[in-house]
Each structure stands twice: as structure tokens, then as C-alpha cells.
Amino acid sequence: MTNFEAPDPGLPVSGTGSSTIAPTDTSAGDGYDAAMDAAMNAPTAYARARAVEQLERIAISRATETSPASDSAPPAFEPPVTALAYDLATPMGLEPMSEVQTGEVRAALFSEGVPREFVAQGYSNLAHLERSGALASDESFEEACRQCRTSVEKTYGAEAQALIRDGIAFLEALAKKHPVLDAAATAALADPFLLSNAANLQRQRRGRL
């Protein structure tokens, strides 16, 4: 099992789809357009990862030259300025990812504007699910999902069913668009934190937050 989507209106960041992050001026001659083209048309995962690294370096450079973004959005839903901000150090209980796979995961998360806090806590929670045996079989996974929904219902009451639907919609779309996140997005259905926060990201995507 590996890892984990949310958007923000603006530019496409990788060749995996049209999801976006906060708008950035691409008129500067800093190589952004060329790197973007390379990422979108990379013939191999390695080439795409290298192109994404170049985009990250440009993003970091631009971030130091521009004023901070507006703080009108809740901090927990702000995407990072670079994919390198995602801490993907392997928690105990999970198999370590290869360098190429780590790059693909970071690129997928960054292209969707997934908040760093969501990834950090979620990665730890996925490791806990693995260690607990919740992902060991279809039966144990189904039971973990049932317990997850029960927990969400106790916490959110009448709002729970709508929240569960939105969370599932977000995670299913994430897995479909980014196969590298499929296992993590599926496992997230068994974790109350991931499911409820996935619903928030889905609602943000629809402009309801």
C-alpha cells in the first residue's frame, strides 16, 4: 500500500490531469513553460519525475519573489508551494516506496493541491490501519470501513451521510485519476480522519467552502 487529491483554481501542474493549484504567472522567462510541457509529455515515469522536480524548483524560486498568499482560506486547506513539502518518510508498518514512486506520489498530490497536513496525518493513519490488520483481508477491511462510518455518524450526526458520500466521491475520483494513489485512497475509506477531511476537500472543490 502506498499513499494518497484536492484542487484549487489555477494552473495545471502535471501531466496526470487538469487539476490545479493557485494561479501563478507563467509569463516570466524562468523555464516554467518548458518544464510544464516536459512533465505533460514525459515518455516515462522517471522523465516525468525529473520534470516535476524542475517545476518545484521554479515554484520555490517564485515563492521567494512574491508576497504571501491571502490567508482567507482555512490554513488546513492550503496546498503547499512545492511538492517537496510533503513528508513521505515511511511510517512503521508500511513498505517503503521507491524514489520514482515517491516522486509520482508527490506529483499527484501536488497537482491536486492536497494539503500537507492531510497527507502527513493520513500517512500515519494508513500505517496504523496496516499494523492493526484492518487491511489484511476483505473481511477485516469491510469491518474497518463499518467502524469508520459509525465513528463519523457519532461525530457528525445528521450531517454524516452527506459527508460520507462526499468523502467517498473525492477518494474514488483521486484513485481513478492517479493510479499511484489507488491503494491509499481505498484504504482511506476505513479511516474517519481521512474520510471526513476528504469530504471537506470535495466540498472545497465544488466551491461550497
Rank of each mutant, 00 (worst) to 15 (best):
P179F: 04
S67E: 15
E117Y: 02
S18F: 08
E159P: 01
R62D: 07
L129E: 12
A107L: 10
S111F: 05
S27F: 04
A173C: 05
T26W: 10
E5N: 15
A73F: 06
G133M: 08
R165T: 14
Q204G: 00
R203A: 01
A188W: 06
F141T: 03
L129M: 09
S137K: 03
S27H: 04
F170P: 01
R48G: 05
G133D: 10
Y46W: 12
A28I: 03
A188G: 00
S132Q: 12
S98Y: 01
A76I: 15
C148Y: 01
S67K: 14
L84P: 00
S67R: 13
L55R: 15
G207W: 09
V105F: 04
S70P: 00
A188S: 10
R149Q: 13
G133Q: 09
L88C: 04
E56R: 08
G157R: 12
V152Y: 05
T186V: 04
Q147S: 07
P7Q: 14
Y32R: 12
Y86D: 07
A69R: 12
A144Y: 00
S137I: 05
D191G: 07
A39Y: 09
A45K: 07
A127P: 03
P96C: 00
A34F: 08
L174C: 12
Q54V: 14
D30I: 03
I58M: 13
L135H: 04
S151Y: 06
T90L: 01
G167F: 08
G207Q: 06
L181D: 07
A107T: 13
E117V: 00
T44C: 07
A183K: 08
A28F: 07
A184P: 07
R149V: 02
P80H: 10
S151I: 12
E139S: 10
A136E: 07
S140Q: 11
E104C: 00
T155C: 00
A108C: 09
T16L: 10
G15K: 03
A28S: 11
N3W: 06
R131K: 13
G29D: 15
G113C: 05
F4N: 11
Q54N: 13
M92Y: 13
T66S: 10
L195E: 15
R146K: 08
Y156H: 13
R62I: 12
T24W: 14
D8P: 03
E104G: 01
T16E: 14
S14P: 10
N3C: 15
E142V: 09
P43C: 02
G167M: 06
D71N: 13
T20W: 08
E159S: 02
Q161G: 00
P12S: 08
A184V: 08
V180S: 05
A49M: 14
P7A: 08
G31P: 11
P7M: 11
L181W: 03
L55K: 10
Y123T: 13
E112R: 11
S18N: 12
A73K: 05
I164Y: 02
A184E: 15
M40I: 06
I168Y: 05
A127F: 00
S14K: 10
T26I: 10
Y156A: 02
G167D: 00
N3R: 08
Y156L: 07
S61Q: 04
T155A: 04
L126W: 06
R206M: 09
S132P: 02
A187P: 06
R116W: 01
I164T: 04
Q204E: 09
S27K: 05
A169W: 11
E5D: 15
P79C: 04
P115C: 01
